[in-house]
Design a protein around this nucleic acid. Structure first.
Lengths: 211, 211
DNA sequence: GCATTATAACTGACCGGTCAGTCATTAACA
DNA sequence: TGTTAATGACTGACCGGTCAGTTATAATGC
């Protein structure tokens, strides 16, 4: 048997397995994904996977843990830098970033898994909630406060604003990845982000006719 | 009635089975739900279920088919009646209805199943897309057009507006049912709908400072 | 009315396939 | 030679779907 010299790299294994797991979970969904397929893709046998993870569920948890917060922290940083100078531009950048991220299957893979699997696993839900939703909420709250302070924003409800910005991004993800709408059927994420920010910033009712 | 052994009621069976299926799917998720449990809950044996449905998948499809469109048609009707007279109030009513529906676990059960299972079953996705999304889009488009005609709304992008109204409702559903946020952790759906409509109608930027 | 036959609703043991997780064994090093 | 990484055949549980058999009800004959 020709020696595949790809052995003895225990340090790198966990990440390799998680990469493979993300790919297979994304392609097949968690329940349909077979551990053996994950192992194959990582260049291992099934048994070896169990040297690094105690169960299939643990792989999902680790995956969520790894990717959860990455995006939220990026958003947090973007707000921290941009909001004090120009809250409006910061808001636009934030939505554009989020929308673009959700349109990218690689980036949205983990949130998508959470969406479909969190109902089955309360601990994943709780983890995601604290690691992502809470961070995002803090960032949005800070952004809004900066805008209000600067007299650029009305003092509105943080949660309403958060859902108004986050909801459409989630919708974009659902439409493209779950309902499988193709790019030609759906607006470019950056354009959509722009249109949504325009609407939220300036309102549906014309300015000259404000009630 | 004297006969507690309620048997032989073939006419009522399919609906009884679907009711049971919805309950079990909602509690356990589709993959985890056992056909035998559905049968038990419907007061039947597993075999009998297969007299009425050819497969477990068929039960899910029938369920989606049954409930899909109900909400969309209600929305369509609400718009058809309200939009010509007062587009702004119609929009508010529409969002309130949607948000309240998504906050009710019984009503949102089917959409939630679609969200988690559509990725696995392209035909369910396609069906939901044509029966619900397309109807909703037409209604929103008509509402927007009526408002523009009446000079009450700016002419904005239909899809952006749709996502801006639908996204937060979906978010509400996800937060309450998937992340299991309790009523005390989250705004009342009607209040949230009001806050969101206020924001979208009048914009985040104060009127007196319009750019 | 009552007995007999026919029919359709229903049952639940069973089959076949799948797959997470285990473990005896082997290969690769030091 | 001892240790560690890795293998993959195997186990056991699970569950969707089937079907031979059972039972309630209706139809028919007398």
């Amino acid at each position: 048997m020709p020696q595949t010299h790809r052995k003895r790299r225990p340090e790198a294994r966990p990440d390799e397995i998680l990469d493979a797991a993300l790919a297979v979970f994304t392609e097949q969904g968690f329940a349909q994904a077979r551990v053996e397929d994950i192992a194959k893709r990582a260049g291992l046998s099934k048994g070896a996977v169990y040297l690094y993870f105690p169960s299939k569920d643990a792989m999902l948890s680790a995956l969520v843990e790894q990717s959860a917060g990455k995006l939220a922290r990026a958003a947090e940083q973007l707000v921290a830098i941009g909001a004090p100078q120009d809250p409006e531009t910061a808001l636009r950048s934030l939505v554009k970033m989020l929308m673009t991220a959700m349109a990218d299957p690689d980036i949205s893979a983990a949130p998508r898994l959470v969406l479909t699997e969190a109902g089955r696993s309360p601990e994943i839900a709780a983890h995601y909630r604290s690691q992502v939703l809470d961070i995002a909420r803090r960032a949005m709250s800070a952004l809004l406060e900066a805008g209000v302070e600067a007299g650029r924003f009305r003092r509105v409800d943080t949660d309403a604003l958060m859902r108004l910005m986050g909801g459409p991004c989630m919708a974009h993800m659902v439409l493209t990845t779950i309902f499988d709408l193709q790019p030609q059927d759906i607006s470019d994420p950056a354009d959509m982000a722009g249109a949504i920010c325009d609407l939220v910033l300036y309102g549906l009712v014309p300015r000259e006719k404000a009630a």
